Simulated scan of single mutants.
Amino acid sequence: MGLKMIETARLRLRQWRAEDYVSFATMSTNPQVMEYFPKLLTRAESDALIDRMKSIIETQGWGFWAVELKHNQQFIGFTGLHDQPTQFSFSPCVEIGWRLDQTHWGQGYAPEAAQAALAFAFDQLKLDKVVSFTTLGNEKSQAVMRKLKMRKITEFQHPALKSDHPLSWHVLYEISKNEFHEVN
């Protein structure tokens, strides 16, 4: 499957580039950006994460794409889809996720990019549903999920975190292909 670049009115979802590594490493050490993740990432961990995301896109043609502003090609984070075949009680599933640089929060970029990724999931990949999840306290991401017309399904403990970890409890949202097409 060839890599598809996705464009919205203001954004471009694309394959990762060498120049994205420094900006993403800076994001990965920002305590506000990483508040709902288990830890800040070292430069090596940040680079390895990009390498994994890039490789997945090269292999299957989709994944967590780098997001840039169309008007100036500035990298602002990532949005996209990730296959979760076995990790969760609700697997197999495909999740949608996003992480944007703090300077670009509150401008509607996350829902705009995620809307395009959902359209790709349902129209190109022919998926029946897409899920999203985050920690209970991450109201900003839950607000994006609600803007996307995703429905809250349940709360669960993330299997990769110890049960007493402060971020272990997550909320699961989902949207079906039919629900997506009813509102779009």
Rank of each mutant, 00 (worst) to 15 (best):
L100H: 03
Q84R: 11
I50V: 13
T42F: 10
D83Q: 11
S55N: 14
F64P: 00
K70G: 08
I56M: 05
S91R: 03
A48W: 04
V67K: 10
G61M: 11
W65Q: 04
D101Q: 12
T79K: 00
G63P: 02
A66N: 12
N72L: 00
E95I: 02
F90V: 03
E68K: 11
M53L: 12
G77Q: 05
F88D: 00
E95P: 00
D51G: 07
Q74G: 11
F90T: 00
W98R: 05
R99T: 05
I50S: 07
E58C: 04
D101V: 07
F64H: 09
I56Y: 13
F64A: 07
A66L: 10
A66D: 06
Q87F: 15
E95H: 03
E45L: 11
D83H: 14
C93Q: 10
W65K: 07
G63T: 09
F90I: 01
N72H: 05
R43A: 06
V67W: 09
L100P: 00
L49Q: 13
E58N: 12
F64W: 11
T79E: 01
E95Y: 02
H71S: 15
I96S: 03
H71Y: 10
L41K: 13
E58K: 14
S89V: 11
L69H: 09
T86H: 08
I56P: 01
V67C: 09
F88E: 03
T59G: 04
W65V: 01
T59I: 07
Q87D: 14
D47C: 13
G63F: 10
E58Y: 14
F90K: 01
P92F: 06
C93T: 12
S46K: 04
Q73K: 15
T86F: 07
R99E: 04
Q73G: 03
R52C: 09
K54H: 15
M53V: 01
K70C: 08
I56L: 11
I56W: 03
P92Y: 08
F88I: 00
F88M: 08
A66P: 07
I57K: 04
E58R: 14
S55T: 12
E45W: 02
G63Y: 09
Q60R: 14
T42D: 10
L100Q: 00
A48K: 15
E45D: 13
W62F: 15
E68A: 11
S55D: 14
T59A: 15
L69C: 05
K54I: 00
G80H: 09
F90D: 01
P92C: 06
P92T: 02
W98D: 00
T79L: 02
S46V: 07
G61R: 11
W62R: 08
F90Q: 01
A66Y: 09
Q73A: 04
L41D: 01
A66H: 10
T86G: 07
G77I: 01
I76W: 08
A44V: 10
I57G: 01
I56V: 11
L100C: 10
F64D: 02
I50Y: 05
F78S: 04
G80Y: 10
F75I: 02
M53C: 09
